[in-house]
Design a protein around this nucleic acid. Structure first.
Length: 493
RNA sequence: GCUCCGGUAGUGUAGUCCGGCCAAUCAUGAGGGACUCUCACUCCCUCGACUUGGGUUCAAAUCCCAACCGGAGCACCA
């Protein structure tokens, strides 16, 4: 209908949409194949989520293909972690970014060797036996290594020697010819392959492994990648790879870069640093609520949609950014608040003895939007309240939410007497919990809050609920033997 | 040191390509108020930015030059 009346309006709509999501339109969008290419040396973090979300969103927008590729060709320095392959896939799926294709770079070794040999034959690559230090000196002076002019045949012989064990680690590398006098030293004759005498975690027994620039360049072409979005730390990397594309007569994909992202609440983090801290016992695991991993955020009860919106709103910008999780909290709150059941939870509870009341049952709405659906909390003559709420004075009227009003008789010990039933405007309202309620511990990014909750929370396993006046939490674990014990992960206020 | 990139409110972002409609958008945040049996949600109001200095022009956030500040790469890591 609208297409018929005003097709240009629809087009406009799409433009607006692009602006609204902060992701600008991509050029050459007729055909879009994009990839996210992590090294699975640890689980996905909030930083990885940016790569997953932005790449997959673009693929979706243009009806293209989203590829998850594991750049796992370093068995040594950034050694892949076996479990992480599946974790990444899990996290992608969780974020609604199920890849159309999943590949392991380490499965493509024959392909890389094929091109290595092709380049050697072409005279575009050579085996260099300079020491690391010596080559650096030459490079900085703009001088070629003597091996650079070796005949392709000789280079090929020496390449085979790299493969068959004639050379040991560090004794020889395969370099890609660029321009030894290029004004940017970083681009001069870079290394395509090096020797690593360490079995790959996946059990692969190659000893000559490609470095990122080679692997990624070949792989992007093999997969038909059309658009690349990645960190600007790979800026020079791209220029290196373009030399390879020139050698092979290929066109380099369209690329975009983003700057470094640092999150106020997490500071700067790296997968390797986290790995170390976990092994030292600083954290309980990769899903410790204090960590910026997707597994941790999931456990804390963040919705994938909120993470997606949070990331998309950052846009794609080359400037480095420092963002607060408050933005993520706001997004998540919008999603979770309308549906999260309300419960009372009192941390570090203190007992309030109430006189003059008869046993009753409090009716508290599961959600403020519908008072007809409520929890029932039996109350005898005592409740628990939070010490934070003990700001009242003797004689003050205090409203126990959804229960009744009491008048404070004594603060030490805490005693009150029943005052009235109906709400009195202007009365301080506090939440409370029955003394015999389940034991609840809330794991927060800054520590553990121990307290008591109300019955019913144990039925919310895996759900995000709101502990009134405390914050949102995800019910993580329920132990029912004897006294009910519940473990929650703090989401946000 | 060499090479590259970036600088719009506290934070993130739109606008910069193709100067004027930008006394600069939206979100988040902060302050205030309304609503509410939550310090949540919702609604209203307020706060707050074009790094600096030159130049071009009738007109500059937008173009040019310089400076300053910030970042990245210069690994047999990704």
């Amino acid at each position: 209908m609208l297409e018929e009346i005003a097709p240009e309006l629809l087009c406009h709509e799409r433009q607006q949409q692009g602006k609204k999501t902060h992701l600008p339109e991509l050029p050459h969008s007729e055909r879009v194949i994009m990839r996210f290419a992590p090294n699975p040396n640890g689980p996905a973090t909030l930083g990885s989520a940016r790569g997953i979300v932005v790449n997959s969103e673009y693929a979706r927008r243009y009806d293209g293909t989203f590829i998850l590729r594991f750049d796992d060709t370093d068995p040594q320095t950034k050694r892949p972690m076996l479990e992480a392959y599946a974790w990444y896939l899990e996290d992608c799926e969780w974020l609604g970014a199920t890849p159309n294709v999943v590949v392991n770079a380490s499965d493509q070794m024959e392909l890389y060797y094929h091109y290595a040999e092709k380049l050697i034959v072409m005279g575009a690559a050579y085996v260099c036996t300079c020491s690391q230090q010596h080559f650096k000196t030459l490079k900085e002076a703009g001088l070629a290594c003597p091996d650079r002019d070796n005949a392709p045949k000789l280079s090929m012989t020496r390449w085979k020697q790299m493969l068959d064990g004639h050379f040991s680690e560090k004794e020889a590398v395969l370099r890609i010819k660029t321009d030894i006098t290029h004004k940017n030293p970083a681009l001069r004759d870079w290394i395509g392959f090096r020797i690593v005498d360490l079995t790959h975690p996946r059990g692969l027994k190659f000893r000559v492994w490609p470095l990122l620039d080679f692997e990624s360049a070949i792989e992007d072409h093999a997969l038909g990648v059309t658009h690349i979005i990645r960190g600007k730390d790979l800026h020079d990397s791209e220029k290196r790879q373009k030399f390879l594309y020139d050698h092979l007569g290929w066109d380099y994909p369209f690329t975009l870069h983003w700057g470094r992202i640092s999150v106020h609440e997490f500071g700067k983090f790296s997968t390797s640093a986290l790995k170390k801290q976990i092994s030292e016992g600083l954290y309980t695991g990769w899903d410790d609520p204090r960590l910026p991993t997707l597994r941790a955020l999931r456990r804390r009860g963040f919705t994938p949609e909120a993470i997606k919106r949070f990331i998309v709103k950052l846009g794609v910008n080359e400037s480095d950014i420092s963002v607060s999780l408050e933005n993520l909290y706001a997004e998540n709150r919008k999603i979770v608040d309308p549906v999260a059941h309300r419960y009372f939870f009192v941390d570090h509870p203190v007992l309030m003895h109430i006189t003059g009341s008869s046993p009753t049952v409090a009716h508290a709405p599961m959600h403020p939007s519908n008072p007809n659906v409520y929890r029932e909390i039996p109350v005898e003559a005592d409740v628990c309240i939070s010490p934070k709420d003990k700001t009242f004075s003797i004689g003050d009227l205090v409203r126990l939410k959804d229960l009744y009003n009491v008048r404070i008789v004594s603060k030490e010990p805490l005693e009150a007497e029943y005052a009235s039933q109906e709400i009195v405007k202007g009365t301080k309202i506090i939440h409370w919990a029955p003394p015999d309620g389940p034991l609840v511990q809330v794991l927060t990014p800054s520590g553990i809050d121990l307290g008591v909750g109300e019955a019913g929370i144990e039925n919310e396993l895996d759900n995000v609920v709101q502990f009134e006046r405390y914050g949102f939490v995800r019910v993580d674990k329920v132990e029912r033997e004897g006294l009910t014990k519940i473990t929650c992960y703090f989401t946000h206020r």
